[in-house]
C-alpha cells in the first residue's frame, strides 16, 4: 500500500468515504477509473462538480431542484391541495415510482431525534406549518418511516397541524402485494387485520 502514488492514494481515500464502499471496493474503483478512457473520467468529474453547483433545494417543498422550484412543484398537473410529508428526497423518488400519487410533497430532511440533537426546528417543520397555514391545502399525508423517530415525528406533526383544521392522514400498513400470508411478519399481519377494509 505504501507503494501507491499519492494521487491514487488520495482517490482511494475519497472513494472509501462514500456510503457502503469499503477499502477494497474503493481500491477496485480507483484502479477502474485509472484504466478508464479520459473522456469517461472527465465526464464523471464534471458531473460531480455540476451536481454541487447546479442542484439545490426547492424553495417550496425542499425536494432537490435545479432552479427555484423542483419539477413536481413547477408542474401544473399536480393537485396543490394534497401534500405528502416525507423524510428525504429519496422517499419522493420511491413514491413517484408508483405513479399513483398526484399531489405535492414536503421534504423534512430528517426526523425528530433528541439523541442526535434534532428538534422540530432543525427539520423543515416551521416551513410546513407556514405552507399549510397559508391555505389551499386540504390534506396532509404524513409518510415518515415506521421506526420510532418517524412515528414520533408523525405524531408531533399531527398535533401541530390539527389546530389549522387540515385533514391529516398516515399511509396504511398492510400485507405486501403478492406476498404469502404465512410468511408475513406478525406485526404486519396484525396491523393488516386490524386495518382491514370492506370490499
Amino acid at each position: 500500500m505504501d507503494q501507491l502514488p499519492p494521487s491514487l492514494e488520495q482517490l482511494i481515500q475519497e472513494l472509501s468515504r462514500l456510503p457502503s464502499i469499503g477499502p477494497k471496493t474503493a481500491q477496485r474503483l480507483a484502479f477502474h477509473i485509472l484504466r478508464s478512457d479520459r473522456t469517461r473520467t472527465d465526464a464523471l468529474a464534471q458531473a460531480i462538480v455540476e451536481i454541487k453547483t447546479r442542484i439545490g433545494y426547492c424553495e417550496r417543498c425542499f425536494n432537490i431542484a435545479e432552479g427555484p422550484l423542483c419539477g413536481i412543484c413547477a408542474s401544473g398537473r399536480r393537485d396543490p391541495g394534497l401534500v405528502c410529508v416525507v423524510e428525504s428526497a429519496l422517499d419522493v423518488l420511491a413514491i413517484e415510482r408508483t405513479a399513483e400519487y398526484q399531489g405535492l410533497y414536503h421534504v423534512l430532511h430528517g426526523v425528530i431525534s433528541p439523541i442526535d440533537g434534532v428538534g422540530p426546528e432543525d427539520i423543515h417543520v416551521p416551513a410546513l406549518l407556514e405552507r399549510v397555514g397559508g391555505g389551499g391545502i386540504a390534506e396532509v399525508i404524513i409518510a415518515t418511516d415506521a421506526d420510532i423517530e418517524g412515528e414520533a415525528t408523525a405524531v408531533y406533526l399531527s398535533r401541530v397541524l390539527a389546530p389549522i383544521g387540515v385533514r391529516v392522514t398516515r399511509p396504511a400498513h398492510g400485507l405486501p402485494v403478492g406476498g404469502d400470508l404465512e410468511y408475513a411478519d406478525e406485526l404486519t399481519l396484525a396491523r393488516a387485520m386490524s386495518g382491514r377494509r370492506a370490499f
Binding site: 425528530i112 433528541p114 440533537g117 428538534g119 422540530p120 420510532i148 412515528e151 414520533a152 415525528t153 405524531v155 408531533y156 398535533r159
Partner: peptide
C-alpha cells in the same frame, strides 16, 4: 435538553405518548 432550556417542555409530549 429541556432541563437546560434547549427545548420546550412541550417537546416531551410525543415521547410520553409513545
Amino acid at each position: 435538553q429541556v432541563w437546560s432550556g434547549d427545548q420546550p417542555p412541550s417537546a416531551l409530549e410525543v415521547w410520553d405518548l409513545e
